[in-house]
């Protein structure tokens, strides 16, 4: 069964989340949300997911600050961040680059320290996004030992590849390349240096069972909260859209 790029990425994120108790999903992150709902379908409702922007039945009863207070207390295992620019030291920039203004840093400067694991996710894999050094540090990838920090990056997933973060070396390691790309293509489109094995594996596609779930119950819950996204992904696959 062929799959959409979004489904491949969601399957990849689901494997990265692995065994977690509580995953929080912030602003405009439909693919990470797909991944968590897929995991819940496969693991009988585990992990707990808190969608900051859930339109009905929002999990936070004290407004948006409760997300940050929960993270500060250690109650959030996994969070997702992106970047207009991301560099080889896992610094992220959500503010400005090459004269262009981006929306802003959101809660990144706090969540990157407070959530136990952060998965960096940006679909565009290009020299303008993956840079040697970000122009503005919204949130730093690592901190000196005197700065209290409970978490940080674990991986960087793009539309071409998956990198794992090596905390001790402060460098990314190329883990796998998605179908349609190659190790050479990734090297040519990445502005920072990283480690890579001699033979780079291919990113596995979701299984047939996972695709059935993604296009059924997962598509329905995503459609409630990210209607435009759901129409784009599943509307394009005739006959498998949300019921």
């Amino acid at each position: 069964m062929s799959c959409a790029k979004e489904e491949l990425l969601a399957g990849c994120i689901a494997r990265l989340i692995g065994d977690a108790r509580h995953v929080a999903v912030g602003a405009a992150s439909p693919i990470p949300a797909m991944a968590v709902f897929l995991l819940r379908e496969m693991n009988r409702g585990r992990p707990r997911v808190s969608l900051l922007q859930k339109r009905s039945g929002n999990p936070f009863t004290e407004g948006s600050r409760e997300l940050f207070d929960q993270a500060g207390q250690g109650r959030i295992d996994v969070f997702f961040l992106g970047g207009a620019q991301i560099d080889g030291e896992a610094n992220i920039n959500l503010v400005r680059a090459e004269g262009k203004r981006f929306p802003g840093s959101f809660g990144s400067a706090y969540m990157y320290f407070a959530a136990k694991k952060t998965i960096l996710f940006r679909e565009e894999h290009s020299l303008r996004v993956l840079v040697k050094k970000v122009e503005f540090v919204s949130a730093p990838g690592w901190s000196p030992p005197e700065v209290e920090r409970h978490g940080g990056p674990v991986a960087l997933l793009t539309g071409k590849a998956l990198f794992l973060w090596q905390k001790e070396r402060r460098r990314f390691q190329l883990q796998s390349v998605h179908p349609g790309s190659s190790a050479e293509d990734v090297r040519a489109n990445t502005g920072f240096s990283y480690d890579a094995p001699a033979l780079v594996p291919r990113t596995p596609e979701p299984t047939a069972d996972e695709l059935v779930l993604l296009r059924g119950s997962v598509a329905r819950v995503i459609g409630e909260n990210y209607p435009e996204f759901a129409r784009r992904v599943w509307g394009a696959l005739a006959g498998v859209g949300p019921a």
Partner: peptide, 20 residues
């Protein structure tokens, strides 16, 4: 602010233009 965004509708274009 920590960000200006129209969510799924995309960038807040008047903010972006004024900031740039």
């Amino acid at each position: 602010t920590s960000a200006v965004t129209l969510g799924e509708a995309g960038l807040a274009q008047r903010f972006t233009a004024a900031a740039e």
